[in-house]
Design a protein around this nucleic acid. Structure first.
Lengths: 341, 341
DNA sequence: TTGTAGGCGTTATCAT
DNA sequence: ATGATAACGCCTACAA
């Protein structure tokens, strides 16, 4: 059986309370006592019992706040599904979830929503914009004892304790690697990105570009258009691109707007000529794969992102366990018709 | 806060002990009391608190037995890694793991090992051979209060409470689907299976065959050889196959023996002509992918299989939670160079 | 600075 | 058939 605080107390001829004070750095312990306790704890290999901790932590009624820029973006449905699943599991431990969502990328709005949530939460899972003011807000929250974990998008030089998300560069590399295989290394590609304002989108393009250059020199990137993560815009710009470049043989869809891009390709009657690789898997994508329009899509485990983020927050609050890794990277999964689901 | 036994007891004007007896079906309760308690529990939405249960279960010193036919098969390294990770996590709950491994497919040996473990364990995770005697043994254990969960390979018509493993048919379908994409639907394929004695191997071939027939009529299966999951045998038989069928343009490696197959292809100087798709990802496969010999491999989340199996056993023992699903199917992941790790 | 005691929810044992 | 009580490991408020 595992070592307990009680056993350490006995071994040191001291009370449980004091051992607890040392092990949880609550101070007010004589240095030599502390020394002794730490040594015995290490010697016996003490590992806190999560069940005990959870039980004791219940009275605190912890709330985990979550703020996502998810409105109007279907991708987040799965992230939220993961959050809900985790919520069920932690509910019986007396920990609750406060989920807020927003639409669009306005810094002020995000700051305001964070402030609004602040008083009701003990931890924040944030889908941040990459801006200094957000980083400052994270620092402020941390000061006040509310730690922050970023999800899906990270933010540079901030005090967030950890990040859960995919490796966007590798996502682009995977898309290129797969396209290289499928086209036998020879293609003229049009890239449909979301917006250059989101680093994740840019990183995907970087990764895609790198692999093309290094491994598939015969894959040529003809054009890069923006969809603004919007299908109408995607349709319009793809249509123009197809008119401009009659020799396009492949399209890499970096972000949302998938339906619009594919509509343009279909209407131009180019389905058989153009190999389309997309990103993420929403129901519409599934449909397009089933119809053979999209050949493959690169996914980033959105469910896992939501589930894992909540679980890390939970462990931090209830079991006082700090995330071991600063970066928790989800897999870049290749989905084709046969392994889609 | 969630509803507790105590609250139910108060609401019914009765002691916690009785409520516990009802909720855990220990009998010795007056029918009308039972009725009342069940109703209030449902009405209030009682969900047992896992932390409380875990704490109380500790004194039992549960041991989860695991028996794998893993010796000499590198694939299982990852399964075992998953088991070890889960072991660490459940250790502090006072639950231990007893892992036994065996080599080769002799029914008697497996039966003997199960008997040997029986007295020391409270649950068995089994990698079973598909034989009636094993099914009978599972029934016997279940009778005696030791429930059984199958891992990686399932067994028909047995009393195992659940199964963790991949969908082998879909694995084969995925391999074919990917090969179809890469070869643009036109290939002459040689299949290297392990042994027709293992249903998983056969199911992969079935899936592969189905997709070829339905979706890629121009993919022709020229030959099927056996590797016996052994590299020497794989090398020899691949060599012969390559001599016999000069026009082979792709190979699907169904099971182990990957290194042997690839060695034969390399020695025949056919690396550039033959597209190889394999199954699973051991270090040697990784190397072959890096060298461009293998283009893609279909994986089945071995780590997750081990981890999940132990966790389900743990929950069953400690929290009295029966697996919701009878089948827990892991994903068939497509790995190419760029998303391998 | 240190010790004591009670409670978190569940289960087991012993008494009634 | 039912109730009372102690125990699991941890945390905390209060007492010393």
């Amino acid at each position: 059986m595992a070592v307990t605080i009680k056993q350490i107390a006995q071994a040191c001829n001291i009370s449980r309370g004091t051992v607890d004070r040392v092990l949880n750095n609550r101070g007010k312990v004589k240095p030599e006592t502390e020394q002794l306790i730490r040594e015995t704890a290490n010697r016996l290999g003490y590992v806190p019992n999560p069940a005990g901790r959870a039980l004791a932590a219940q009275k605190k009624n912890y709330v985990i706040g979550i703020l996502l820029i998810s409105e109007g973006i279907r991708f987040y449905d799965e992230v939220i599904a993961g959050i809900r699943r985790a919520e069920q599991e932690i509910h019986s431990y007396g920990v609750g979830i406060l989920l807020k969502t927003m639409r669009g990328y306005q810094i002020e709005k995000q700051l305001a929503l964070i402030d609004e949530m602040k008083s009701q939460i003990h931890f924040l899972i944030l889908n941040p914009m990459n801006d200094q003011r957000i980083a400052d807000k994270i620092a402020e929250l941390t000061e006040e004892g509310i730690e922050v974990l970023t999800i899906n998008t990270d933010i540079e030089d901030s005090k967030r304790i950890s990040h859960v998300g995919c490796d966007y560069v590798k996502s682009g590399e995977t898309a290129a690697g797969l396209l290289g295989l499928v086209t036998r290394g020879k293609a003229k590609v049009g890239i449909a990105t979301g917006t250059p304002m989101l680093s994740g989108h840019n990183q995907r393009i970087t990764g895609f570009h790198t692999i093309c250059k290094e491994k598939y020199p015969m894959i040529e990137i003809l054009d890069i258009i923006e969809t603004n993560d919007d299908d109408t815009c995607a349709y319009e710009n793809t249509r123009k691109m197809l008119e401009k470049h009659k020799d396009i043989s492949a399209i890499y869809i970096v972000a949302a707007g998938t339906v619009g891009v594919c509509k343009a390709v279909e209407q131009a009657g180019l389905v058989d000529q153009i190999t389309i690789v997309s990103s993420d898997l929403i129901p519409e994508t599934r449909d397009l794969i089933q119809r053979g329009i999209i050949k493959a899509t690169i996914c980033q485990q959105p469910f896992t992102q939501g589930y894992k983020a909540v679980n890390m927050a939970f462990k931090r609050l209830v079991s006082n366990i700090t995330p071991t890794k600063e970066l928790n990277i989800t897999k870049n999964e290749i989905k084709i018709l046969e392994n889609m689901n």
